[in-house]
């Protein structure tokens, strides 16, 4: 083989090597992830170890933001409020989402008219921006006889319900609005899952004499488990990150009774200009979200392996 042929062969090998390698395809994505995801995350973690404020250019590195966060009044209440908000939202979003998905599926099997309309109507709630949902529910919850819900409640002889001014009722009101908002997403995901279930298995269960409840609990739910798990994790993280709707609905009040972690971050940074404190709170939220993701990967990974 002469020199020229050797060079051609080497060049061909290199081209083939690069062509077959995933690296060129991954470089643009990696760069984008680096700048729009990793860099901001790094910056938030860095700022959490500072006393930075938007009002001053100078700052120093310290752990005082974390010490302050964990020792000041309100932090543990915020965690409890967030936990209640997320747990109730996730459970009922999944419950109602599954119920509506089942109803639509049944409706389609029975060739009932209007199933598409129901699906679209439910999806509308999901498409409306959070701030608008907050305002809509604020109008609904108005605590005067002219408030929509209080007006309806008055027909059953109940006095005005303090939806937004009582700390416990306000948390209930915010959670209810969030359930209404997020049910559609669960419905879409679970409806898609139900469509993929093998019909022969369901029919076999029916022929074997399994009741509707047994078919639901022993056949359908186990087969839907991966979808339910994905849904669970996505809506959990989404609910942890919710702040726009809460801000428009209650602003976190009365007091701090509806101040979830994400809203607290916004308030610290944009209302009090306390970047260090806000970043420290954001790191707490990030840790929770990362924890949720690890759980998701482990549990789903095991199921996939099984």
């Amino acid at each position: 083989m002469n020199t020229s042929n050797k060079r051609s062969a080497l060049s061909l090998t290199l081209t083939k090597g690069i062509g077959n390698s995933p690296i060129p395809w991954l470089i643009p994505l990696s760069l984008i992830l680096l700048f729009v995801f990793l860099f901001p995350v790094f910056e938030i973690i860095r700022y959490s170890f500072t006393d930075a404020s938007f009002l001053e250019t100078d700052y120093s590195y310290t752990i005082s933001s974390f010490v302050r966060l964990f020792t000041l009044p309100g932090f543990y209440q915020m965690l409890i409020v967030t936990l209640i908000f997320v747990t109730a939202s996730v459970f009922f979003q999944m419950f109602f989402g599954f119920l509506i998905a089942l109803l639509i599926d049944k409706g389609q099997k029975l060739n009932l008219k209007g199933t598409v309309m129901v699906r679209t109507a439910v999806l509308t709630a999901w498409a409306i921006p959070g701030v608008v949902i907050g305002i809509i529910w604020r109008i609904m919850y108005t605590e005067t006889p002219s408030g929509i819900l209080n007006y309806l409640i008055s027909f059953v002889g109940v006095d005005i319900v303090p939806f937004l001014s009582d700390p416990y009722m306000a948390l209930f009101a915010v959670t209810l609005a969030n359930i209404w908002r997020g049910t559609a997403f669960s419905m879409i995901l679970l409806y898609a899952g139900i469509q993929t279930l093998p019909k022969d298995v369901m029919e076999a269960a029916k022929i074997d004499g399994a009741s509707a409840i047994q078919r639901l609990l022993k056949v359908m739910l186990p087969m839907l488990a991966p979808i339910i798990l994905i849904n669970l994790i996505i809506i959990s993280i989404d609910t942890f990150n919710t702040f726009d709707m809460v801000m428009a609905l209650t602003g976190g009040g009365p007091g701090q009774s509806t101040e979830v972690i994400a809203l607290s971050i916004y308030n610290s940074i944009f209302r009090e200009f306390n970047l260090g404190h806000g970043a420290a709170t954001a790191v707490v939220l990030l840790t929770i979200n990362v924890g949720m993701t690890i759980v998701y990967l482990r549990v789903l990974g095991k199921r996939g392996a099984a």
Binding site: S53, L55, E56, G74, S165, D166, P167, A170, G252, G253, P254, G255, Q256, S257, N267, R271, E272, F273, N274
Partner: peptide, 23 residues
């Protein structure tokens, strides 16, 4: 003052907690 926003926010929390009966 650069502390004004924090003072205002915390006192808004305080008064709304008093009115709602929380504290």
């Amino acid at each position: 003052s650069q502390h004004y926003n924090e003072i205002s926010n915390q006192m808004q929390i305080a008064v709304s907690e008093v009115i709602s009966g929380g504290k």
